[in-house]
Amino acid sequence: MALSRPLLELLSDGHFYSGNQLGERLGCSRAAVWKMIQALESAGVDIFHVRGKGYRLARAVELLTAERILDGMPVGGRQSLSVLDVLFDVDSTSTYLVERPLRMGENGHACFAEFQRLGRGRRGRHWVSPLGGNLYFSLRWRFSRGVAELGGLSLAIGVALVRALRDEGVEGLGLKWPNDILLHGRKLAGILLEISGETTGPCEVVIGVGLNVRATEFAHEAIDQPWSDLESSLGRRVGRNALAAQILTGLIAAARQYDIDGLDSFRDEWMAADAFSGREVVLQTPSTETSGVVQGVDENGALILSLKNGTRQHFYSGEISLRAVSDRLANV
C-alpha cells in the first residue's frame, strides 16, 4: 500500500488521534486508516496504539520541506541550486537524480526523501532507510575535472559532512576510508558517488548521503553493523530541515572547492579525522586480503598502507572493505 504523507502530517505533532478523527480528517473509513497505519509502520515509523485514545507517534516528527531547507541556506548556496526536490517516497534519491541529467546552464540538483525503498550503499549493499527519522539525499553536480581526477571526491565530501556536524555540536566524529563517517567508532553516515562523463572532463557526479539522525526500533532490527545516531549522542532533538540546509550548503561549497583545487584543500583535514590512522587494518577485495598499518592518503585519495615487509602500498577505492585488526580479532 502507498505511504500516506497526509496521515503522517496529522500524527507528526505527537498527539493521540482516534481512528474516527483521522478518518474524518482524511475523508476515509477507519479500516482505511488502519491499513495506512500498518503501511507507515512497515516503513519504520514507530506508532503507539492505545485503546480508548487511538494512535500517536512514539516521537513527534519534523517532516522535510523544500521551503524550510532553502530558507536555512545562505543566498550563495540557494543560487547554486537549479532544483531542490523533497520527495516523500522514492526508490533511491541517487537513482532519481541519475535519471535526470543536468540541462545546459543548470547548476546543482538536490533531492531529499523521507523514505527510500531501495537505498543503496557501497558494494551493492542495501541502505536501511526508515521513514521520517534520518536524512537521505543526493546532489547532482557538474565538474570540469575528468573521471581520473575525482578519486578523492568522496574524502572531500566526508570532510564537508564532518564540518557541518561539528557546527551542530557533535563530538567524537571520525572518518573511515573511503566513504564513512563514524561517531565514537560506530557508523553514522555513508557516502556513495556515481560518476558519468569523460576521462578528461567534464563529468557529472551524483553524491548520495545517508545520515542517521534518530534511532528507531525498526533500524535496530534491520542494521547488521555497529551504528550510531545524532539524537542519541546529543541527547536532544535535531531539527532535520535546519540540518539538511547546513549540510547541503557545506556539500555545495566542497564540490566547488574540489573542482578548483582537487583534494589539496581537504587532505590534511581528512587525515586529522582519520579514525584508523596508525592502526593495523585488513583490506579485503573479492580475491585478496592485505594487512598493514594506515599511513594516511595520497594526493589522489588512495589509502597508504605500511606493509610488514617495510614497503608502502597505495589502494584505490572500489570493491574494498577496510577493517581494524583489533575489531576483527574481537569477533573471532
Rank of each mutant, 00 (worst) to 15 (best):
F115Q: 03
R78T: 01
D91A: 15
A110V: 15
L102I: 10
E99M: 09
L102R: 13
L97I: 13
I69P: 01
L87R: 01
E99R: 14
V90L: 06
T65E: 03
G72F: 05
R100G: 10
R100Q: 15
V61C: 04
E99Q: 14
D89Q: 11
G77L: 02
L97W: 13
G72D: 08
L70A: 13
G105W: 00
L84C: 07
L87D: 00
A60W: 05
Y96F: 15
F88E: 03
T95N: 11
R59K: 14
L70S: 13
S94K: 05
L102S: 14
L118E: 12
R100S: 09
G77V: 02
L118P: 00
T95E: 12
G119V: 14
G108D: 09
S82F: 13
D71Y: 02
V75D: 12
T93W: 02
E62I: 02
D91W: 06
L81D: 07
L87N: 01
E62A: 09
D71E: 15
L97N: 06
R103F: 09
A113M: 08
M73W: 11
L102N: 12
F115S: 03
T93A: 02
R120L: 11
V86I: 10
G108E: 07
R59G: 07
N107Q: 10
F88W: 12
Q116P: 00
C111P: 05
E99L: 10
L63G: 03
R68V: 10
G108P: 02
S80E: 12
L87T: 00
A113D: 06
R78F: 06
G108T: 14
M73C: 08
R117C: 04
F112P: 00
T95K: 09
V83H: 14
N107E: 11
S82Y: 13
R120A: 14
D85M: 03
L97H: 09
R59S: 12
V75R: 15
E67K: 10
S82R: 00
P101V: 05
L102F: 08
R117D: 04
V86L: 02
M104R: 12
I69H: 00
S82Q: 02
T65N: 03
R120M: 10
S94C: 10
Q116E: 14
D89E: 13
Y96D: 00
L81N: 06
L118V: 13
Q79N: 11
Y96H: 14
E106A: 08
L64G: 02
H109I: 08
V90D: 01
D85A: 09
T65G: 07
G76N: 11
T93Y: 02
R100W: 09
G76V: 08
E114T: 12
S94I: 11
V90E: 06
A110D: 09
R100N: 08
A66Y: 04
S94L: 06
V61W: 00
P101D: 07
